[in-house]
Design a protein around this nucleic acid. Sequence first.
DNA 1: CGATACATGTAACCGGTTACATGATTTT
DNA 2: AAAATCATGTAACCGGTTACATGTATCG
Lengths: 196, 196
Amino acid sequence: MAKAPANPPSSLGYALLGLIHQQPRAGYALAKVFTTTPMGHYSGSPGAIYPALRALERAGLIRGRVERGGTLRPKRVFSPTRKGLAELRRWLEPPVSGDDVIWRLDELMLRFAFMDRLLTRAQTLRFLESFRDAVDVYVAILETHRAETASTMSLHGRLALESGIAGYQTQARWARHALGTLRKKRSARTRKVRRP
Amino acid sequence: MAKAPANPPSSLGYALLGLIHQQPRAGYALAKVFTTTPMGHYSGSPGAIYPALRALERAGLIRGRVERGGTLRPKRVFSPTRKGLAELRRWLEPPVSGDDVIWRLDELMLRFAFMDRLLTRAQTLRFLESFRDAVDVYVAILETHRAETASTMSLHGRLALESGIAGYQTQARWARHALGTLRKKRSARTRKVRRP
DNA sequence: CGATACATGTAACCGGTTACATGATTTT
DNA sequence: AAAATCATGTAACCGGTTACATGTATCG
């Protein structure tokens, strides 16, 4: 069984590991992903990226090869090691907990985005189902809280709480939408086989 | 004009300042707010609360009075100073920027929740309008991004992006709802005057 | 030729987490 | 009497921010 490492990567570390798995990249290219796409809400500052890459390398999860594209400016292109892929899987697999939904919602979306290449369809569906369930539970908690405090809370407090509830309800709806989409989708293989 | 202090409080500091303004409280009571309500997503650990309170006190924004309720366990109940109230207002006033929406959405909701006692209705409406506009702009950016990368992005990437878009659309809808609610509401004074 | 983009790094600082520590009071 | 809650604090650690530092390559 895969054991958790003593010092697991930070959330940013997993983001980098996942991007590197999509395709080998250098630090600068990774930083550009964060600054030019709405990926998670990670900062692409060198002071965050390069130390995180070094930590991943020290932990043996990625390996960097120096590339000179004919020019004289070297860049270190990183690829995941076998250990790195295993760690990525270990991060992606677990079902969604209540704490995940409250404290690490962004990270859950990041995990989902990286899941397609590393988990089976069944595992992905289980992830989405646990996400949906955990969000439903939290929405119920929030609604209970609203009902219990409705009389004492100020109008502004109530509205702010309703913003949170609406946000989580949207996530629950999204989870159902995603489940529907993934269940409908036939794998490439199946489609090929079905061709006349 | 109110000048920004050299070392403004952290987000947690403003949350504490706002709660203390709602009613004077001690550290333990403040911690309990974070652990027993869905307020923001701040941690109520003593290692966060007490140093933050000390920093607010050092900055002259709050003042603590020791209370002994007949018993022998003293507690320090904090109240905002005049300077603290001014700093709270300074934090609440500014219109919402694009960066706020991307990086500090939770803090914006916190600001809204504390606004009712310290800003005028007109200021609150301006805040909500700028919030709505900033969210609309960001939704447009995200949708453009989706359109531009739709062909190259994986199904999972697309779905994750759509989760983000749906979340922000929900916030935009909420802002309109809140604006409607606050515009309809008549102030207590107006209502009194209109009574036959 | 100047500006922008590519490319990588370091170091001080800061705030929050985790864990530890202590003791009174209330509840079961 | 034990357990839970009230109540306040400290200290090591860690990760990210900000700012600094350096140099190449490309573009207008």
